[in-house]
């Protein structure tokens, strides 16, 4: 089931007359399905937060379309089954953690009884039961993020948006948030994770999109994004055998006694290499596409994307 759809979503911020307009999102089209953990990556200022805000109706759309549960974001019902943890949240500091969860629940139209039942579960989930009755202003950054996660989940939403959930928190706090995220994913909820921390996204996301200068430049599973195009690693007993690859097929990048890496013009040319090895009676152990880290893929994608001006 499709939860979020954007079609050619464009957002232009109108600033002062002399500064001109800022193109924050440039015709972004993507779909997110039920139960998916979707990671949105991009450098600072890429438009990640703007994308989340337009989907939630916090920021208006200049052109294109956004649908959440099939409804436009200016319809409050589209947010009935969504939860949101903003970037650098500044929750009402006169409230306690419990008070914040209750406020969020009441604004979502929940009954007092339902809120009370759910808050116990959520405080446990985010590990904040002990500090539930402490004022938010006394919380550390990690505690604020965790209570923010709990308030985002109070109405048992189908989809939860997390904007830089581990930003500025210590490694232990990050692990705690990540653990909570995994538990949310295991409950079958759709998670829209907005982050510039690649390792974090790589660890939890099913699918990843890379946004740069407002443009969606890559989208796919982590495997799809990290695979090096037409590059294969072949594990075989090559020994001293001399393997030659014609220029129109590709070239050998590295060759060692047990391993060879080739770059091919087309993926199907891998059969030619295999045939060559078999002809020489070389035992082949494995043939697999070369992978790189998500960080490398991200950097490649961002540096390859053309410069645009609004």
């Amino acid at each position: 089931m499709r939860i979020i759809e954007t079609h050619h979503l464009t957002k232009i911020y109108t600033t002062g007359l002399r500064k001109g307009n800022v193109l924050a999102l440039d015709s972004v089209s993507l779909n997110i399905d039920q139960g998916e953990v979707f990671g949105l990556l991009g450098p600072n200022g890429a438009g990640k937060t703007t994308l989340v805000k337009t989907v939630l109706g916090i920021t208006s759309v200049t052109a294109g379309e956004v649908l959440v549960h099939g409804l436009p974001p200016d319809d409050p019902a589209s947010r009935q089954r969504t939860g949101f943890l903003p970037e650098n949240p500044r929750f009402p500091d006169h409230l306690t953690g419990r008070g914040l969860i209750r406020l969020s629940g009441r604004l979502s139209g929940m009954s007092h009884g339902d809120i009370e039942k759910r808050e116990i579960v959520l405080l446990e989930l985010v590990g904040m039961s002990r500090w539930a009755d402490t004022k938010i202003r006394k919380y550390s950054k990690g505690m604020t993020q965790r209570i923010g996660l709990a308030q985002a989940l109070i109405s048992d939403p189908d989809v939860i948006f997390l904007d830089e959930p581990t930003e500025g928190i210590d490694p232990i706090g990050k692990i705690e948030v990540r653990e909570a995220l995994k538990r949310i994913r295991d409950e079958g909820k759709t998670v829209f994770l907005n982050s510039h921390l690649l390792g974090e996204v790589e660890m939890v996301a099913d699918r990843v999109a890379i946004l740069s200068r407002g443009k969606l430049i890559r989208i796919g599973t982590v495997d799809e994004l990290t695979v090096r195009e037409n590059q294969y690693e072949i594990e075989a007993d090559i020994g001293n055998e001399r393997i030659e690859v014609p220029e129109n097929i590709g070239k050998i990048v590295i060759i060692k006694s047990k391993r060879m890496t080739v770059t091919l013009e087309k993926p199907e040319h891998v059969n030619f290499i295999i045939d060559q090895l078999r002809l020489r009676r070389v035992r082949i152990w494995s043939v697999k596409p070369v992978r790189q880290s998500l960080e490398r893929s991200f950097l490649d994608a961002v540096t390859e994307s053309p410069e645009d001006t609004a």
């Binding site: 805000k53 939630l56 109706g57 916090i58 409050p76 019902a77 589209s78 947010r79 009935q80 969504t82 939860g83 949101f84 903003p86 970037e87 650098n88 949240p89 500044r90 929750f91 009402p92 969020s104 604004l107 979502s108 139209g109 923010g148 308030q151 109405s155 948006f161």
Partner: peptide, 14 residues
């Protein structure tokens, strides 16, 4: 305020 407005505006209330 930034960070607080987003919390309120993301609620299912017009």
């Amino acid at each position: 305020e930034k960070g607080r407005a987003e919390f309120l505006l993301s609620q299912p209330v017009s």
